[in-house]
């Protein structure tokens, strides 16, 4: 077996694996910055036409305007986030509304088990409904004390910190409750349907 070529003196970006006192999932490294990743142009959504909807297997669909949405009971969140491209960022601070409050505003049909998050610009991602409940997820419109920048998903994005960050749909516009799991943008091309970083569920079949 031939030795792999190594570039003399090349170290690459600082990457500390597992230096978060058990807070860094396997295969990840810590980052101080906040990398911007995207699959397409940044949507420009005027706030006076922005809306958030919950549709699908609910007794009646629900819709909020920006005014109504940001008037919902909201709170600060301090969470760690992990991207499947291997960076993890600790102690990120957001402000927004819990999915428990959003889903609590509709009557969910008992056969609803999965959710597809839809975003302005066409991105979608799917996850089990149970991963959105019990204070595990929120929709944020502020990051680090300021309005969420478009590059990072503003006006508002879904944040599900216990799953890989591609599940935290930027530019979120609504949730669709479903009985079957419907693979989203990346899940339909090899990424995992659930995406638990602690089990390194990066790709389907992991």
């Amino acid at each position: 077996m031939t030795d792999r070529f190594v570039s003399r003196g090349f170290v690459g970006r600082a990457r500390e694996a597992g230096d978060g006192a058990g807070r860094v999932p396997p295969g990840q490294y810590l980052t101080e910055g906040f990398p911007v990743l995207s699959a397409g142009p940044t949507p420009q959504v005027p706030l006076d036409s922005w809306e958030f909807t919950i549709t699908g297997l609910v007794k009646a669909p629900m819709r909020w305007s920006w005014q109504e949405f940001t008037a919902l009971p909201s709170r600060d969140w301090l969470v760690d986030i992990s991207c499947v491209t291997k960076w993890t960022k600790l102690d990120t601070s957001w402000h927004g509304v819990s999915l428990d409050d959003l889903l609590g505003a509709v009557e969910i049909e008992p056969r609803a088990r999965f959710v597809t998050a839809h975003s302005y610009g066409g991105y979608t991602t799917n996850l089990p409904l149970t991963d959105l409940l019990n204070n595990q997820a929120f929709v944020a419109w502020q990051y680090d004390g300021s309005p969420l920048e478009p590059a990072h998903g503003g006006p508002a994005r879904l944040v599900v910190p216990h799953l890989y960050l591609w599940k935290s749909a930027k530019w979120v516009r609504g949730l669709q409750l479903r009985e079957e799991d419907e693979p989203g943008f990346w899940e339909s091309l090899g990424y995992h349907n659930r995406g638990d970083p602690w089990r390194e569920e990066r790709y389907s079949g992991d």
Binding site: R4, F5, V6, S7, F10, V11, G12, R13, R15
Partner: peptide
């Protein structure tokens, strides 16, 4: 393509 000793590549 650069490769570090631990296999990391850029």
């Amino acid at each position: 393509r650069l490769t570090a000793a631990d296999g990391y590549q850029a």
